[in-house]
């Protein structure tokens, strides 16, 4: 199982990194999205896939054995939501940058720094 997820993570990282290295700002956005997915899956897999049982204690029980690790899940949950906020902010920021610099080419934008 780990091998399969490891390959998926590798592909998401490779494609994401390739996309954020493009000069077209729109591709940068897609790259951020791919990387975000890759990171979520990475944290999830590092928690080990030992059980597919949700970490929920059944009614009447006091504890649970053999469960999927809840700690990475909690981390990913907030990461997903924050990822949304960051994505929205990046979109608006990029849009403003495009408007101010009048180009969709990341390479051209640095000229306005000087």
């Amino acid at each position: 199982m780990e091998l399969l997820l490891a390959v998926v993570i590798g592909v998401l990282y490779a494609t994401g990194i390739y996309m954020i290295m493009r000069r077209s700002i729109m591709k940068l956005i897609i790259g951020i999205g791919l990387l975000a997915h890759g990171a979520d899956l990475l944290i999830f897999t590092l928690g080990r896939i030992e059980s597919t049982k949700p970490p929920i204690i059944a009614a009447g029980e006091e504890s649970i054995t053999n469960y999927a690790d809840p700690v990475p899940q909690a981390l990913i949950l907030t990461a997903i939501v924050i990822g949304f906020g960051v994505m929205a902010f990046a979109l608006v920021l990029f849009r403003e940058t495009v408007r101010v610099s009048d180009t969709g080419d990341v390479q051209e934008m640095r000229l306005s720094d000087r």
Partner: peptide, 20 residues
């Protein structure tokens, strides 16, 4: 860029396998 990206992806795959 493709070379760098693929190398980084491979590294991540290895990373996951080594840790798990």
């Amino acid at each position: 860029d493709v070379v760098i990206a693929v190398a980084a992806g491979l590294l991540m795959t290895l990373f996951v396998l080594v840790i798990t």
